[in-house]
Design a protein around this nucleic acid. Structure first.
Lengths: 160, 160
DNA sequence: GTAAGTGCAAATGATTTGCAGATGT
DNA sequence: ACATCTGCAAATCATTTGCACTTAC
């Protein structure tokens, strides 16, 4: 067994390698902070805020600033490696681009449901036909009320 | 001609009356700030940020604070009179509940397209069937790329 | 060596909150 | 009169920016 590094699983280690190659290939530099950030994203598999990622990175690399995480996420997004989504009211949620997906988010309890892109197919087609608009299914979650909240009293507060 | 008040158009004046009656009926108090706020919303017909509304209100009623506008918008929303939507990255957009509608927003240039609710019909039906989730078409805009940006270079920066 | 990346602190923008005084019913 | 609203100032939360120093290449 080789020395334990940032990513423990061999699969993730391989994918991390690919991402770093892609990063370098586009002119980006491979730094400690970036390696750790991508490692953390691979480990957690998405749905992380910048703050959560900064914390995860800090475990092995204390002193990595939140601002650095934001700058790196921005850069990785520009390179097409990372994607961010706006779910409820809080902070943005970051994902690896290869694992991007849509969301339904309950306005009342905040529960998040991951959706296949097919859910948006007919909306995307209609938007393209009527306005020439290409829908991005994962950038903004679709709001609404989840089954639990519909069943409970909460739903009645909003629409009788 | 009667004295000029907050709302000049007779139609809006009538609708304002209805809204104030509804407000009082639910136990809310009719204050200067609220009358002016609803008047401003009627005049502008939606797509206003809290700050824009505060400015509009300030014309006739200087000294109305932004925090008061936020508190009143929150209360009016609780009463079902007003609704807010998250369009791009900026401030929330407030609308009268009676005029709520969905939006497509371009990630690149920020242009906003108002959509009929039918656009969401098939998505809403699928979400209801698979997850028992009731979609709210107007609370979050659907992200994507508008026709102009698709035609220009900008689109190529994002997805080749 | 040089441009790109980072730490740090401070600014930003949107929204919220605490509290004492003013106002609607 | 009494609870509700409001003014005001300050706090909060997510994110961004300026600048001097460090590091990857």
């Amino acid at each position: 067994m080789s020395q334990v590094r940032d990513a423990a699983e061999p699969e993730a280690e391989a994918e991390l390698g690919e991402l770093l190659v892609a990063l370098r290939g586009k002119g980006g530099r491979v730094t400690t902070a970036r390696r750790a950030l991508l490692g953390a994203m691979l480990e957690r598999g998405g749905h992380c805020s910048a703050e959560e990622l900064a914390e995860a990175v800090s475990v092995a690399h204390p002193g990595v600033r939140l601002s650095t995480v934001y700058r790196n996420l921005e850069e990785l997004e520009r390179l097409g490696v990372v994607v961010h989504a706006h779910l409820g009211h809080g902070a943005a949620s970051y994902h690896l681009a290869s694992r991007a997906h849509g969301h339904l988010v309950c306005e009342h309890c905040g529960v998040e449901i991951e959706t296949p892109d097919e859910l948006f197919a007919s909306l995307a087609q209609a938007a393209a036909q009527r306005w020439g608009f290409r829908v991005n299914p994962w950038h903004s979650a679709v709001s609404g009320t989840c089954a639990d909240c519909l069943a409970s009293d909460r739903a009645r507060e909003i629409r009788p």
